[in-house]
Computed example of a mutant assay.
Amino acid sequence: MAFSFNQLKKIEGNTIKLPALTLTANKGDILAVQSENEYIQRIFAMFNDPKELNSEMITLPDDGLRSVYLFQRDDGLYQRLTVKQTLTFWCGLYQQTPNVEDLLTLCDLHACAYKKIKHLTASESCRLRLASALIQHADVYLFEDPSLMIDLQSKQVLHTLLLHLAKNGGTVLVFTTTLEDAIRLGQKVYRYNERGLQEIEQDKDEMEEVFEETSLMDSSNNQVQLDKVSAKVEDKIFLFNPMEIDYIEAREGQTFLFVNHEEFASSTTIKALEERLQPLGFFRCHRSYLVNLQRVREIIVWSKNSYSLSLDNASKSTIPLSKGNYSKLKELIHL
């Protein structure tokens, strides 16, 4: 064990500000925790104010908090420096001697190496902040929603960086507000809410639910479903044409339909919706996701075990694609 939360919690009066969190991580682990932003903010606030932490709440490496690296989205940068000057400054500040050219390459910063910080895009700034993790050697790396509002190029850099840190003996914990990012980034994935921490079971071939085999390409064995999909909002029931739906997600025992920029709760299980919508071109890309293949614009390969689907919808959504279903999708679209 390299690091652990031991019933970490925060209570003010009669209000639970942070539910009990118990989680153990070892060297080389990449753990991803999906949670509400307010919980993530409070966890990082406790690390920024060590008086709120005690030895009973958290188990640290031998060097204590000095061996913990925090990636926070509001970390300041010196606006008048260039990217290369910033990296050089950090190397001197932390008395490290990494090759700056290697840092630029790993974080895909060569194109903006001589650009001043104040002129960087949000994604370029994020990649620069990520480079600091390669300079500040640590045993444990905590990341606060690192994928938020960044482009695909930066997401790929982030994925590569996390693998690099873990390969070199680091313990990595990523806290994110979206399940898709948690599934894409973590080797183990958890959901943390008011009920505490629950591990999300990842898709594995031997653990897949057994359904009757239905060929998506054999229309002779499938009867087209013309009925609509219902969702309830307060006292109203909405009926959606299946082709209006971008994708469907199951979480916390509920099913949600994503239509344009909005989500709607449905009382129908994702398994039942899969059986109804499969003949219309919907594909179970992950245990928790059912996607309308007409909306899929790109299959993103992050690594040999991590994939996502990029959708051609108004929100430019990305949703996870499990390893087993990646092979099925390739066969389906003849890749």
Rank of each mutant, 00 (worst) to 15 (best):
I319A: 02
I58K: 00
P19F: 00
K10Q: 07
E249K: 07
I30E: 05
R184W: 08
S147C: 14
T255Q: 00
E12T: 04
F47R: 06
C112H: 11
Q278C: 07
R284W: 03
I43N: 01
L273I: 05
I248S: 04
D62Y: 10
E52I: 08
R295Y: 10
E56H: 03
E124Q: 14
H137P: 06
Q79I: 14
F258V: 05
Y192E: 05
L18D: 01
I30V: 15
G92P: 00
T105W: 07
E298T: 11
E199R: 09
A111L: 13
I333E: 11
S317D: 15
V189I: 07
I43K: 01
S315V: 11
Y39T: 01
N222E: 11
P61R: 00
T88D: 12
R129K: 15
L18W: 07
F47H: 01
L128G: 10
I245Q: 02
R73V: 11
E275H: 03
V33I: 12
W302N: 15
H137R: 14
E101C: 07
A166Q: 03
K328I: 08
S288D: 06
V83E: 12
D29V: 04
R195T: 12
T177W: 01
E206L: 13
K27Y: 13
N6E: 08
L277Q: 02
F3G: 00
F256N: 12
S132I: 08
S4L: 01
K116A: 12
N26M: 09
N6D: 05
V68H: 00
V174C: 00
L53Q: 02
Q34N: 06
F240G: 03
S4T: 06
V33N: 00
F47W: 05
N222T: 15
A250M: 07
L332R: 14
A45S: 06
D145H: 03
F283Y: 06
R195K: 11
F3Q: 05
Q7P: 08
T59Y: 09
M207Q: 14
E298R: 11
N193Y: 02
Q34C: 13
L77W: 09
S267A: 14
D108H: 13
C107A: 03
D205G: 14
Y190P: 03
D246H: 12
E208Q: 13
G170L: 02
S215H: 14
I183K: 07
A314G: 02
G281Y: 10
F240W: 06
M207L: 15
Q153N: 12
Q7I: 09
V83C: 07
L142H: 02
F89I: 04
E36K: 12
S220C: 08
G253E: 04
H159C: 12
P98C: 11
T22V: 02
D205M: 15
L257M: 03
A133S: 15
Q41P: 02
G28W: 01
L21D: 06
Q294P: 04
Q95N: 09
D63V: 04
L81W: 15
D145Y: 04
R66E: 15
T255H: 00
Q156S: 09
E249Y: 01
N260M: 05
Q7M: 08
I248D: 01
R73K: 14
I237P: 01
L77H: 14
P279M: 04
N54I: 08
H110R: 15
E199H: 08
D102V: 10
I117K: 12
S327G: 05
R295E: 11
L134W: 09
F3V: 00
C107I: 07
L309N: 00
F3I: 04
